[in-house]
Design a protein around this nucleic acid. Structure first.
Lengths: 215, 215
DNA sequence: TTCGGATGTGAACATACGTGCACTTTATTT
DNA sequence: AAATAAAGTGCACGTATGTTCACATCCGAA
């Protein structure tokens, strides 16, 4: 954030910096797939994969943790983009559930490495990374809750109950994500099965929400 | 399992073996809390914490991965015990949901370290550990599905839909578990809030299941 | 063209790790 | 009391890691 120069010619001076920075981020993402873990990566390993000497790492990040935080940021930036697109198309009604799930799965597939990273680090990452991820998910859930409040059927549902419902849906999406990541990309049959299950689960949740009375 | 001697005097010869084995397992569990990760632990670190020289480790496990698998086994053994207790008390009806959630949370609290371990390694552990955990959860979900099938209201629900519902509930439990683990044990207010949310979510799921028609 | 800061390099350090090996200790079975 | 196998020890090795420092190279600004 405070990285950019205050002058206008930032893009002309940065190409080199930008490139190895990207290379480091990509190297880390790629290595997370192979080495089970982000914590399991070493600064030297990442630098090596990025085609750079270990000490060059420090020119871009103070330590591995900072790199991890950058990855969290990146991951949710793309997710937020998706959310915005979906929101622009209107809140999914029961009819639109199926296509939404399909879209989402395709999205997860095209951003596998970022989702893998988040799924893995969500609970086993460093303290700061865990916090960052949790914070993003919290935000995401809240936004979904306000989306829900605009559905006529849920117009008079209490704020707490809306939050409860959206967290239920986010849970479901999260779990779907992790299941999709856990099967090979070629197994389309299994993927379609997962999709059908997720659609049913979402539909069931909507059913429950429809007949929900605050008690 | 093939560890016990075939003779009768197993307990007289084993105390030493049994004790350091336990010490190693406990050391690992304790260190997982501090070091974010099981993969982040080193054989030497665990041995040190267990009060034993590194090479002694090999007398009990071929490598760290084996230790991890033993921990998975242990964790789910206790969870299965809980399941059996609950089942003995009958499948929770709507009235019993609240007390079930309370019971479960208390259970998570008294077995924090095992649950922490599973939550962390579920996605970021080694291949074999991930598989072991997934297998256990799958089994757990299936058992819950057959439990659900015994509820009169769901008597004529298809097997697939039952599976779908139980996985929805397991997701919810999983997420509750992880949320409970993420707040300090002293924060009873937040814990009660989580409990109330989880109860509502379960109730909503039951509501949805009740008005579920196979399509 | 020259200058200066950003980016990348290379060597070196202390430290930690996994594992192999020959050994001592311990406790039970004969 | 002697034998034996399991459990624990101590030492050594090759390898990997994070971080330091002084130095080289690049490239836009002056």
């Amino acid at each position: 954030m405070d990285r950019k120069v205050e002058q206008t010619g930032d893009t002309r001076r940065d190409p080199r910096r930008g490139r190895t920075r990207r290379a480091l981020l990509d190297a880390a993402l790629e290595l997370v797939e192979k080495k089970d873990n982000f914590t399991a990566l070493s600064l030297r390993l990442v630098a090596r994969k990025a085609g750079v000497v270990p000490t060059a790492f420090y020119r871009h990040f103070p330590d591995m943790d900072a790199l991890g935080l950058a990855l969290v940021d990146e991951s949710f930036r793309t997710l937020r983009q998706l959310m915005r697109d979906v929101r622009a198309a209107g809140v999914p009604q029961k009819q639109a559930i199926n296509s939404s799930v399909q879209t989402y799965i395709r999205y997860v597939r095209t951003n596998t490495r970022h989702f893998q990273f988040v799924a893995k680090e969500r609970f086993s990452g460093s303290q700061s990374i865990r916090n960052a991820i949790r914070q993003e998910i919290r935000l995401f859930t809240s936004e979904l809750a306000t989306d829900l409040s605009r559905i006529p059927l849920l117009a008079k549902t209490s704020a707490e109950d809306l939050q409860m419902m959206s967290s239920l849906m986010v849970n479901n999406m999260t779990s779907l994500t992790e299941q999709v990541l856990d099967i090979p990309a070629e197994d389309v049959a299994e993927e379609m099965f997962l999709a059908r299950m997720a659609e049913k689960q979402l539909r069931l949740i909507f059913l429950g929400a429809a007949s929900w009375r605050s008690k």
